[in-house]
Amino acid sequence: MSTLNDVVITKLSGGLGRRNPEQDMVSGLLFEGIATSKLALDKLERIASLEDAIALGITEDYDFKGQSAYYQIQQFFRMNPSGDLYIMAVAAESYSEVVEKAMEMQEKANGNIRQMAIIYSASTPFSQTLAAIAKAQVQADLAYADYMPFEIILEGKGFDFESEADSSSLADLNSENVSVVIAMDLDKLKEKNFNYTNSAAVGLALGTLSKAKVSENIAWIEKFNLTGDGFSKPGFVGGKEIKSLGDLRTLNDKRYIFTQTHTGLAGVYFNDSHTCTAGTEDFAYIENNRTINKATRLLRTALLPKLASPVLVDIDGKLPQSVSKSFEGLCRNALEGMVANQEVSAFDVYVDPKQNILATSELKVKAEITPVGTARKIKVDLGFKNPFGIDQA
């Protein structure tokens, strides 16, 4: 059957590249606070904007008397307007008591939280912040053991870099899933009716983390300029100003997270993504942890349906190639998306066919990922050149 001449247009789908939203941005803010008519203590709330927080009664007025929940939420959504934030207000008598609620909050969120900031309103010496770091690592360890890993960001409350005792190195604390922010906007401290002198800009850090890929350092200058409403003049908790590059180098070596400016470039930026452990450790930076946490979740999701499944063996009790390759394939499929998204450089998965599953009822999988590197320093050799050569001068 003949047809009329025509221009035929077929409608295609998928060209916009839309996909299911990533869970990497899902964050949490845990704080000691008071209930409102819409906000109950110990109740988890999920918000998608600052307006959602205001609807719960967390307005600017909520931040009187040392509280900073409104400010932290405002900074979170300023850095990532598409952010996804769980919040929970609790009653507590100390910073550590708030921190000890972190795993409870994660469980109420069904393990969805990938990074959590924790704040406390009362005046707190730095010694209590150090105690809170240890408590936070316990919470992170519990979460990893229950297959819901997350990173914790704490305020460096009571920090004073002029006191040797208060500027002790965080590298010695063996808390690889905890980071301490000591940055604060000096202009914010001067605002009337607020008392942010013992608060740190953890909402700023949390929002930046939620915007970043798991492999990205929040100090990436090209991508994460922090300047904006609520953060314009970098300083420290307590209202201290940055005095010298020497001070910054010292604090960086001691693995604090703060903000700084760079000569010749407008804007304010984080110094790095340190965790409270030695810089030589595998998990010395937040992006290392977020990467391994994501791989952990993906691999478990891929393998969990196979739990308690029958596994064939050959006459020698070894795994047939088809079986070992099948499990390897499940893991590879789970991790390939991370390579495509440039969250890892490469990975390798191996299932040893010689393992004795009949005796142990355990099937062992070895997975290794090659992370994405970070250019923390860029070194250039620069000098003069005489095109005629020195002998012809």
Rank of each mutant, 00 (worst) to 15 (best):
E281V: 15
A266H: 12
L298D: 08
G317I: 10
L303S: 01
L299E: 00
Y285W: 15
F258K: 11
S309Y: 06
L319P: 03
I257L: 05
T275N: 02
L303C: 03
T263G: 06
T301Y: 11
K254T: 01
G264Q: 12
S326G: 07
T291S: 04
A302I: 10
K318E: 10
E328T: 10
V268E: 00
N288A: 12
A295R: 14
G329E: 05
T275G: 05
A302Y: 11
Q260K: 15
G329V: 06
T263C: 02
T280P: 01
V313M: 08
F258S: 06
R290V: 03
N252G: 08
C276T: 02
R255N: 01
I286K: 12
G329C: 05
F270S: 02
H274I: 08
N293H: 10
F270Y: 08
S273Y: 01
A302R: 07
P310E: 01
R255K: 09
N293A: 02
T301N: 07
K254G: 01
S309F: 03
I292T: 10
T277L: 11
T277G: 04
G279H: 02
L330Q: 02
L312P: 00
G329I: 10
R290Q: 00
G267N: 07
N252Q: 09
D282V: 14
A295T: 14
L312C: 04
Q321E: 09
C276D: 02
C276H: 01
A308H: 13
V311I: 09
T301L: 10
C331T: 05
T261P: 12
P320N: 06
S326A: 14
Y269M: 08
F270I: 00
T275H: 01
G279Q: 04
S322V: 15
T263D: 04
C276K: 04
F258P: 03
